[in-house]
Design a protein around this nucleic acid. Structure first.
Lengths: 332, 332
DNA sequence: CTGTTAGCGCGTTCAT
DNA sequence: ATGAACGCGCTAACAG
């Protein structure tokens, strides 16, 4: 490439990646650009990475790429990445903590400039400790880290306000007159589940009430999990007038169970409120009342934190959420 | 790292990445492994890439990471990648052909081992030509390419059988007695739209019928596109008894328009059949009859083709699809 | 079985 | 403004 243009490789490098001794004469610049085009030359990123000790790759670790929740986050991340000329390596852990650690190591070997931990963290102390260790190793090598949602580690974090959102959902039901409210919770080892449960308890406490363990059923954060938890709950508490699901997937399962197995009408017999406001929420039947999370914005913001080289104390941003009242909730 | 273990870097390389002169004595091996652990050493992928002239990264180009259609494909790709110890770089083009080309170049500079073009291709000849040129450059450098769905370029491709699927959908309606069937089509520049339309025409021809242009409305491949196209169609043809949407997103929009704006019951007044069988299809109201595509499998298979170094003629695999009859279709 | 040596392609001094 | 030369961390021959 350099010879084809009849210049030194240093000069070629300067015009193609414009750094160091920046200025190159117009004549040589032209020749280099022509040769590059003629040879359809593209630079070699691994070589650049080696020489510069820095890549333009960021890693994004999610539980499941097919989950619309992560799809929304990823969209924000991709948008920000594009704005900064970064490429995104996506790793799907399929909800395995072990895989999460493994991918973190691989992202380290890739010398990713940064990694984004999306999805909720796990509460297991042993896991969190090991995660912290890996992250420390990564940052020691100059990598940046940010979390979407609390992961229990010392890293910049941006998270939708889970706790306030859950309180919003409970308040919504309470104002409609509901007093016998069942809660469909996700896996207890997820930090986000704990935060959302705490929000429910906050709101209950303000009302002078509490959360009876019998009114709570946990399950997978999925349609099936929601279905099973709903059946379990109504078996124990046939007189529930409302259901608060800790995510939209579980709410979808609840609606299905209520209609097919339980024969209850929504919102006539039972009101249902979800959490996340995924795109399909409006198409459920009835259209789901839920808590809207600024997921894209969250992903985008996390990328911005990562790119902001400012050194300082850990930053934690909590993004505001809102309740979207649709047709699945009504007066008690 | 090598000195810490008191061995040559070649030996260290051998035990850590076991290549070339494979065998290393147990004693040295132990020392290397211990040092690696002590120093929490991780290899440098860019350096390896430079030396080996080959990375363990594959690129996946999609239109939109939030679209469940691509989520399903990506899941299959990720699963296969994991099985082969590959990392996946995901590029979202946001449906811009220009961006698709740009990301292809960037994947070239990354020296990705392979790239997967997912999502439907565009029909624009100028774009296809340029795409072909870039792809040729990429393969000339040793990169592999595979397409998920026809992209009009000379590359291995694996695709769900769009044409047969559309015929299946039309047959389903026809057998239920529908004769006035409206078709909700996506953007005409998408190859998949053309294939699906061809399938509809195939099935119609077999029945001795044809597709009246007035029975067809095109729109965005989205909920909103489906809604608008449905309104347009019923404005022209108020007597339609069935709607065939070329993807589930449009079908969701059709259901909404039918219920809210048009006041028609489904399937009482109008039957609706979709295409793709995305996860939310069963939760629409009424549950959507649709054509199920083996999307995960398609993504997985595309990765397998890419990894299979066999040189030979271009391979094209068409994966079978099936009709899933649910509640949105009924007798005319 | 193990060490030595020569690049891989590029960024970066340091001269010129 | 330009070129020569070194090194980034690693793999791949080649010698022992």
């Amino acid at each position: 490439m350099a010879d084809h243009a009849g210049v030194s490789i240093a000069t070629a490098s300067r015009v193609l990646h414009g750094s160091a001794g920046r200025s190159v004469g117009p004549e040589l610049r032209r020749r280099v650009e022509e040769s590059a085009a003629a040879l359809s030359y593209v630079s070699n990123a691994p070589a650049q990475a080696l020489a510069r000790a820095r890549t333009s790759v960021v890693g994004l670790i999610v539980h499941d790429v097919a989950d619309p929740y992560f799809g929304a986050i990823a969209t924000g991340v991709m948008r920000a990445a594009r704005a900064h000329d970064l490429m995104v390596m996506v790793a799907a852990t399929f909800r395995s903590p072990r895989l999460e650690l493994e991918y973190l190591v691989r992202l380290r070997t890739q010398r990713a400039r940064a990694v984004l931990l999306a999805g909720s963290g796990f509460t297991d102390p042993a896991f969190v400790a090991e995660l912290g260790r890996q992250l420390a190793g990564f940052t020691a090598e100059g990598g940046r880290v940010a979390c979407v949602g609390d992961h229990g580690v010392a890293a910049d974090t941006v998270t939708p306000d889970n706790r306030a959102g859950a309180a919003l959902a409970l308040d919504h039901l309470w104002r409609l007159g509901h007093r016998r409210i069942g809660v469909l919770a996700g896996p207890g080892e997820l930090i986000s589940v704990r935060e959302r449960l705490a929000g429910v308890r906050d709101a209950l406490r303000v009302r002078g009430a509490g959360l009876d363990p019998a009114d709570l059923a946990a399950g997978d954060f999925s349609r099936e999990g929601g279905r099973a938890a709903t059946l379990e709950l109504f078996h124990r508490r046939p007189d529930l007038t409302a259901l608060l699901a800790l995510n939209d997937g579980m709410a979808a399962g609840a609606l299905a169970a209520l209609r097919s197995e339980l024969g209850r009408s929504v919102p006539g017999d039972v009101s249902v409120v979800g959490f996340d406001d995924l795109p399909y929420a409006q198409d459920l039947h009835p259209a789901l009342s839920t808590v809207r999370l600024p997921l894209e914005r969250t992903g985008e913001r996390a990328m911005e934190l990562i790119l902001d080289e400012a050194v300082g104390p850990l930053r934690t941003e909590s993004l505001p959420v809102e309740l979207v009242a649709r047709a699945s909730t009504g007066p008690a």
